[in-house]
Amino acid sequence: MALNTPQITPTKKITVRAIGEELPRGDYQRCPQCDMLFSLPEINSHQSAYCPRCQAKIRDGRDWSLTRLAAMAFTMLLLMPFAWGEPLLHIWLLGIRIDANVMQGIWQMTKQGDAITGSMVFFCVIGAPLILVTSIAYLWFGNRLGMNLRPVLLMLERLKEWVMLDIYLVGIGVASIKVQDYAHIQAGVGLFSFVALVILTTVTLSHLNVEELWERFYPQRPATRRDEKLRVCLGCHFTGYPDQRGRCPRCHIPLRLRRRHSLQKCWAALLASIVLLLPANLLPISIIYLNGGRQEDTILSGIMSLASSNIAVAGIVFIASILVPFTKVIVMFTLLLSIHFKCQQGLRTRILLLRMVTWIGRWSMLDLFVISLTMSLINRDQILAFTMGPAAFYFGAAVILTILAVEWLDSRLLWDAHESGNARFDD
């Protein structure tokens, strides 16, 4: 018995066209964080690309023209004298008006014999932002004059995390709450300039795509075929072959399989920071003279006294001054041990922890910024005066060393310790 099946006739004509040209192939790229070699397709503007294995951002879609970056830099340069030299806060102490600005706080630190601690604050609040705007201006002028731009481009990517104007702005709020127990506070004209400078700096850093600047100024022929001998440069993120001198053909720094002496430098910085954190938390970090009496505060006791007036601000200072430094030390110690013992479990967790400490590390400088600003506000000789204690130097040095330890660690070593050939990683 035959089955009668109805015929289905399409209502619209289906047209099949042959592909007349070869589909576009992607360029081969190595991930600078996990060293995976993959094919990167062509990316349009405002599109980002991520590593298929570790999800690290390979290409950032946010990109401004150099002219727009230069305009932002010149605007920031105009704001800087007002943000640093004009009063941020006014207080009335014992019937006398006192003005506080950024430069005055750094000068008070240096004047009291601790120039190293003052230079830490100076670099993060004044030096690094000033280098940022002058570097962008150098790129703008240098591109037109045919100057060598490689050193500036190499420095810009590392400079971003040292620009800490946003953290200093939080420190202004913390210092205001600490001082309000002794005097009446009012915002100064410099505060508005400083807030504007923070906003412009944040926007500029978020749109400063150094890798795209490398592509514009020093374009290189990408690798179009897969080759395990391809290496990625950690300076400019170019994937290719080393030249005859073993250097990256684009930025001219040595092109090595792994960062040289990464573990040794990381261990040295980490152990030194552990040693410095002990006096930083045991010795007094601030000293207040009130009517001839002397009151010393460690980091913890200062947080407890701050909690009596504002528990939320005390929580912020606790996280930045105690929780973050010790968390960074514990995480980095764990990561280094996992590399030495070739741990194969929990790779995803370790990668996330490394990215976390990379982002939060700079916030530990908050305590030094609060001390710097408070020193310029309260300084009335023996009637009422505020000065920093010996722990300030140890704390600042420990924070900087932990930042350097994270920067010096080559994250690809975590993958080397893991089993080879993993296309995915999980716990």
Rank of each mutant, 00 (worst) to 15 (best):
Q345L: 15
T239S: 13
K13I: 06
D426A: 04
G146S: 06
E228L: 13
T349S: 11
S372E: 10
I288D: 00
M80K: 04
A397K: 03
G142P: 01
A196L: 13
L200T: 13
W415E: 06
M76I: 05
I322H: 02
H252S: 07
Q382I: 09
V163G: 04
P10Q: 07
Y289M: 03
W107D: 15
S262R: 04
H46R: 05
A115H: 04
L230H: 10
F82P: 02
V152L: 01
K111S: 08
M155D: 02
M109L: 10
T202C: 13
I360D: 00
E296S: 11
N209I: 11
R62W: 07
T298Q: 14
E21L: 05
L89N: 15
T110C: 13
K342D: 10
H90S: 08
S376F: 02
I351F: 12
A320L: 15
A392P: 05
S308H: 13
T358I: 12
E42Y: 03
S309V: 03
H46D: 07
L290D: 00
T9F: 06
K111D: 14
D410G: 00
G95N: 05
Q55S: 08
R25A: 08
K265S: 07
R53A: 05
P41A: 06
V203Q: 04
Y138A: 08
L270F: 04
L234G: 12
Y28I: 09
L208G: 12
V102E: 01
A417E: 11
Q180W: 12
L208C: 15
W84L: 07
E296K: 14
Y50T: 04
T201Y: 09
L132K: 05
T349Y: 13
E86R: 11
L213F: 07
R144D: 04
N281E: 05
A397W: 11
W408P: 11
F425W: 12
L290A: 02
H46A: 07
E22P: 08
W140K: 07
S48I: 15
V198P: 07
L213K: 15
V406F: 10
L300C: 09
I403N: 03
R17V: 07
Q295L: 13
G315H: 14
L69H: 09
S176C: 12
A417S: 13
C124M: 10
A385Q: 06
M164N: 04
K160N: 09
P81Y: 05
F425M: 10
L230R: 13
P390A: 07
R225D: 15
A405Y: 06
A175S: 13
D99F: 05
G396D: 02
L153I: 13
D243L: 07
I126T: 14
S286H: 00
V102I: 06
K178A: 00
R258L: 15
L409I: 09
I106P: 05
L335C: 10
L282G: 12
A49H: 05
F425E: 12
D181V: 01
D381F: 04
T387F: 06
R424T: 05
A392S: 07
P284I: 03
A175D: 01
G113V: 09
Q104S: 08
S364R: 00
I172N: 05
L23A: 07
M80A: 07
F74R: 01
W267C: 15
Q264F: 03
T110S: 15
R260Y: 08
Q180E: 09
V317P: 00
A392F: 03
Q244P: 12
C248D: 02
F393K: 10
A83R: 01
L153A: 15
C266V: 12
L78H: 05
T204M: 11
L366W: 01
Q33D: 08
P6I: 05
N379C: 04
R216S: 13
G361K: 01
I19T: 06
A115N: 04
R17Y: 07
T374E: 00
C343W: 15
I185A: 02
